[in-house]
């Protein structure tokens, strides 16, 4: 359930950005969440619904989650491969020496504000 902490982190960033950019209401938040990150998007949405209600800045805001697929570099067959989880083996050679290249993202990409 660390999605609650992460969601609070999102709201903190929104509050900081509101002060910096002079907006008073967030309508939409686009979050990039990698398939290999430690976040369950549904859980994040649930937590956001609860946290957003507490502030006029975020009340009613919509969360749009953009999933970033997991990719890795296989050190055995020297190729870039798609992986769905950390425990996947290389789909080409079956090797386990995979260095993740994308899919660990957890970030706010952009906001629709007014």
């Amino acid at each position: 359930m660390h999605e609650m902490s992460l969601t609070e982190g999102v709201v903190r960033i929104l509050e900081d950005q509101a002060a910096t950019h002079g907006f008073t209401r967030v309508k939409t938040i686009w979050l990039e969440i990698g398939e290999l990150s430690t976040v369950v998007p549904e859980s994040m949405e649930f937590c956001f619904g609860a946290v957003a209600k507490g502030s006029p800045l975020t009340e009613g805001a919509r969360l749009e989650i953009i999933r970033i697929p997991g990719t890795a570099w296989c050190m055995d067959c020297s190729g870039s491969v798609v992986v769905a989880s950390r425990i996947d083996l290389c789909p080409q050679c079956g090797g386990a020496k995979l260095a993740v290249t994308t899919g660990e993202e957890m970030r706010i990409k952009e906001l629709e504000v007014e």
Binding site: L6, E112, E114
Partner: peptide, 30 residues
């Protein structure tokens, strides 16, 4: 702040006060 990068790719003054702010911040940044 990037105007004109809204959902429809346009920004028409007066029509909406909405704007898009690109921030690219890591959620765990703090």
């Amino acid at each position: 702040i990037h105007y004109g990068q809204g959902i429809a790719g346009v920004h028409v003054p007066g029509l909406s006060q909405s704007r898009i702010v690109q921030i690219e911040q890591d959620i765990l940044g703090h």
